[in-house]
Simulated scan of single mutants.
Amino acid sequence: MSGFGTTDIIDRDILSYVALGDSFTEGMSDPYPDSDTVPNGRYRGWADRVAEHLASHIGEVRYANLAVRGRLIRQIRDEQVPAAVEMAPDLITLCAGGNDIIRPGGDPDEVVQIFESIVADLTATGARVVVFTGFDTGMHSVMRHLRGKIATYNMHMRAVADRYGCDVVDVWSMRIFDDPRAWSTDRLHLSTEGHRRLSLGVCEVLGVPAEGTWNEPWPPPEPRDWRTARQEDLSWAREYLVPWIGRRLTGRSSGDNVTAKRPTLRRCDPGSRTD
């Protein structure tokens, strides 16, 4: 079980927080305003934003983000989990398995076995562990066929969370993410606004006060004719889908030669850039 309850997280004088995962937790595609000046294109993302929200209510928040884009669940288990266990933080967020599930042949039953082994190691530290369901891909025409696999993984994962006393951020049920404006131009990663909303959803699960609500209705969308939509689809396929397929065929990853943006626990200040 977690080391502290849902009501006393902001009553602590010092809190250590470690985020584990892939590009979703690394923060793609939510750049800082000066991201062009940051080596390796560092991103902000929902986890950095959660750390900042925590720092607004806690005397000292020490934060590490070990997530690296493209990582498969075995890589997260082997590369990130031992480091997180050694840090012995108070709070851990874990989102893993998505890259495995969306690949051809990805088996949710096999992936969740590794997921459970990770959760067992993390909860054994006494940390409060927060996990995430997969998104509903029904609104993505190219990824709609994956809904069944993702739903199966979500059911298994929620059972694991129940067994080990983890909190769950159920992004599958957050219909606010059905809107294309929640996603970046690559249609695979959250937009800046998507990351902002997700950080508010995580704060809600943690019981951390934050300004704004994750499910605030979107403003009416700007009208688009079918020609514009078609051209956007073609541009997306050329710029993002074809390179993604190429990496799968050649065994390459977007995370090759990329390291964790925040590999050690360091102080995080409210509203500051954390990388």
Rank of each mutant, 00 (worst) to 15 (best):
S191V: 14
S254Q: 14
L241V: 12
Q231A: 01
R248P: 02
A182Y: 00
R187G: 12
L241R: 05
E211N: 03
T192I: 09
R247V: 03
W214M: 00
G246Q: 12
S253I: 13
T192C: 12
S254D: 11
S184A: 15
R247P: 04
P209Q: 12
E211C: 00
T228I: 07
D186Y: 10
Y240I: 12
D186A: 11
T250S: 15
A229H: 06
H195W: 01
D233N: 06
L198K: 00
S235E: 11
P220F: 08
P243Q: 04
G212R: 01
V242T: 09
Y240D: 13
T250K: 13
W244V: 07
R238T: 14
R196L: 07
G212S: 03
V202K: 08
P220A: 09
L249V: 13
C203H: 05
D225W: 00
R227H: 14
V205C: 10
P220T: 03
D179T: 11
V208A: 02
L241E: 03
C203Q: 07
P220E: 11
R197K: 08
T213M: 02
S199Q: 04
P219G: 03
E239M: 06
P220K: 05
T185V: 13
Q231V: 00
S253G: 12
E232S: 14
D179I: 10
T185L: 13
Y240K: 12
S199F: 06
W236E: 09
S184Q: 04
